[in-house]
């Protein structure tokens, strides 16, 4: 885990970290407050191979030495891991239960949602936040979101989800106050799905 970093390979992060992370956070906060609304993070810097710009922006904004990170196996040991370690300095873990954040780029082969930390009864905030990179936040089969943050209802058509994923998200919601929370990223864009959101699958 603590292999030395080759600094020559590390790409730069925010030119102005204070301003950059503030701007990204406001979008992510809006996303978590209004589930399913899609925001643009096109102003963020390029991320290294394996990570989209939005995924990199979320990592730079939320990860640091106080957050234990589960990295997708496909990112481990690569440029993306080096970039995150250099710019954020988080401890890495391979135990989904120990992760404050999971950065998932290959959802089909990732552990099931329920394998991550659901928080505990007194401290449900100690649960994992899953940052999931998808091919697109639009164009997939539509589900309908309702709940806090949504005035009436909100359609969402994430693309590239493996079969049965929405059932896992529904099960996650059913356990409220326990549960993980999701930040979905694709390209320059981000949206979020807190555990409080109810999901209706079309045809259900």
């Amino acid at each position: 885990m603590s292999a030395l970093l080759d600094l020559a390979d590390i790409a730069p992060a925010f030119p102005d970290p204070t301003r950059g992370s503030q701007a990204v956070f406001r979008k992510v906060m809006e996303a978590m407050a209004r589930p399913g609304v899609i925001h643009d993070l096109g102003f963020a810097p390029d991320a290294p191979q394996g990570l989209d710009r939005a995924a990199g922006a979320v990592a730079l904004t939320l990860f640091d030495f106080e957050t234990r990170i589960w990295l997708d196996p496909s990112l481990r040991g690569g440029l993306a891991e080096g970039w995150i370690r250099f710019h954020c300095g988080p401890p890495l873990t391979q135990d989904p239960m120990a992760a404050a954040f999971a950065l998932v780029t290959d959802l089909a082969s990732a552990p099931p949602v329920a394998a991550f930390n659901m928080g505990d009864a007194k401290y449900p905030d100690r649960s994992t936040t899953l940052v999931i990179q998808l091919p697109s936040l639009e164009g997939g089969p539509q589900v309908v979101l309702t709940g806090p943050g949504i005035k009436t209802e909100m359609p969402l058509s994430l693309a590239g989800l493996p079969d049965g994923f929405w059932a896992q998200v529904q099960a996650n919601h059913e356990q409220f106050q326990f549960g993980v929370d999701f930040i979905f990223v694709a390209g320059d864009r981000v949206t979020a799905l807190p555990r409080s959101t109810r999901i209706t699958i079309k045809g259900d």
Partner: peptide, 24 residues
């Protein structure tokens, strides 16, 4: 400082995800 802001920002996200729950 930026680290403190990140810590608070993470708490805000969890607070929004669990409406009404007091996040330390």
């Amino acid at each position: 400082d930026e680290q403190t802001k990140r810590m608070i920002r993470r708490a805000i996200l969890k607070a929004l995800a669990i409406p009404g729950y007091q996040a330390p």
